[in-house]
Design a protein around this nucleic acid. Sequence first.
DNA 1: TGGTGAAATGCAAGCGCTTACATCATAACT
DNA 2: AGTTATGATGTAAGCGCTTGCATTTCACCA
Lengths: 357, 357
Amino acid sequence: MADIRSIPTLDDVAKTAGVSTATVSRCLNSPDRVVESTRQRVMSAVEKLGYTPNFGARILVAKRTFTIGAIIPTMENAIFARGLQAFQEELRKKGYTLLVASSAYRPEMEEEQIRTLVSRGADGLLLIGHDRDPSLYEYLDRQEVPVLVAWTYAADASQPSIGFDNRASIRALTQEVLNLGHTQIAIISGITKGNDRARQRIEGIEDALAANGLDPKSMHIVETSYDIERGGQAFDKLMSLEKRPTAVMCGNDVLAAGALRCARERGLDVPGDVSITGFDDIELAKVVIPGLTTVHVPHREMGRKAASELVKMVEKKSVGKSIKLQTSLQIRESLGPVMPQGPTDTGTGPEDFREDS
Amino acid sequence: MADIRSIPTLDDVAKTAGVSTATVSRCLNSPDRVVESTRQRVMSAVEKLGYTPNFGARILVAKRTFTIGAIIPTMENAIFARGLQAFQEELRKKGYTLLVASSAYRPEMEEEQIRTLVSRGADGLLLIGHDRDPSLYEYLDRQEVPVLVAWTYAADASQPSIGFDNRASIRALTQEVLNLGHTQIAIISGITKGNDRARQRIEGIEDALAANGLDPKSMHIVETSYDIERGGQAFDKLMSLEKRPTAVMCGNDVLAAGALRCARERGLDVPGDVSITGFDDIELAKVVIPGLTTVHVPHREMGRKAASELVKMVEKKSVGKSIKLQTSLQIRESLGPVMPQGPTDTGTGPEDFREDS
DNA sequence: TGGTGAAATGCAAGCGCTTACATCATAACT
DNA sequence: AGTTATGATGTAAGCGCTTGCATTTCACCA
């Protein structure tokens, strides 16, 4: 009996209970394979010693860690935080724990994080978006780590994904904007490099324009990082153009909130002078004045379903199917009809200018 | 040479490089103990085979997982998300990975999560607030898992903590409110059970009242969960009182944002009819109209410093010192002087009534 | 050229657990 | 009562890695 205070092992429990280690192990892992009386003896020994199985030893044998890794761009954006929260809750229900890392939207950083989580023994990985060096997928494949891509949906991609159709969603919103008479539309987009969602959102807007006989290339696009301040700056830039857009569609709600604030600072009425739209429908969209017209995305549902699908993949109950979620338009006050007498000048041929800042 | 595609082990690398496993291990862990030529041979074998050390085996021996656990109430509140983000970034720099769980503000859930993370081999734990069953601390002590408490500062507590003085911070804010002539103050607090921060914030307000010769017990306190909707409902309740408060101080910015929205819906002018304050200074506080007067908390700094202190503790370079951070008042438009002709009636003796819903 | 010490490498013993297989006890048959 | 199934428990072989100690190598010196 080692009385020197130290972490007890299976062996200690076995000794105090007067059984073999195998029996203790069975008590813990498949209690029905052990008879009631011994089980009680063992359990009270466990209790008495305050025994907790050694994780390393367990996974060394089990070849599983019951740990799932998630790498998201940042927890600071409410959409990821919320999705991750739901993801974690669902994981917990299934007996898994969440390992988290963030990439700050930087591909090299993400790659490093992927390798770290894999070497940490993650049984499966949740990644955001498809855009990624193919060699990374090969690596993951070799390591036999299942991957689920979230926040986007692409049935034809090599990896299973769960999410929504970014392109179609914003196209629907754009149609709404166009129906209100807007023809001068500008975009404040997130950085598109390594971000398929951002690109798809731009494409969706272009789709709508084309479908309505407008030149998709006529839009002014400002690319900036997802940040309230940056959104404001981008908006300011757009409003300083000679030909002001009558509607500014933003890549997400955070950018839109920045735009809204800037509009207010410039004394511009929204939607009187200019309409503003967002994407995501986070809390911010409801709190802001005027309320933000945006695309509602079921983040919680996505997190939850991502967890169950990924766990299924890890447990080989699924080879990974792609799941498409529905989005819906959330029309609020920030979108209104175009005002003919607005500050917009009447130029008909907006320049073909795309800025990649 | 096992050509059957499977995850390579140290042994495989040793064989292909023609050395012993010990040498390979040394190449990976202390490269300077191996001569250049063999190291190259080994490294190219590692490369060729795509070898990644087995996590379980490594930690079984090392008795360390280089993993830190954090249990926070929820990632949905931006303050935790932001702090956690900084925490994770700093951890990564030091070679640690973050294991995350959330308790949804529920003590039993938190306890379960603590045990889970410990059994998952977390080398150290970040917990929010001190309020916790002492047996849990004993357990952690027995398991030899260092714990750092965050989001609060208490030099005299049994556990080291990093954070700010909730009580003094809000007391300063309250003084500001009192200076503007308010005497009828109400509080919308978070649930205080198991939440020392929430309690301290109430106490801080009471301190200020007492210091200014007002009866601390005169305040109407509504307790509700941290949620925009709930904040609105609580505010609504307060505004329906016969003796309306002229200032409503909220436990955090989320509650305050709800209050603000409700005020708007009721057609109440803020701060003309009623002043509203928050706590945390999250993004929301800047975006809302009118801008929210609140207490600025350095969440990122807290996350960062928590990470370095906790790592020090894990590496036994510190026994855990408490760190106090400074907060500052962030005065914005939602706080204004009390208007004598406001809707507040002139009753002088507010009822001694405290509600714990 | 033989001797020496330091540096490089190999050997092998675990780390704490799970599990296939062997053994033993018990209850249920003929 | 003797023989079997059947279930409960024990034995011991790893899982893949690190590391103390033993052995080998080699540069350097007398």
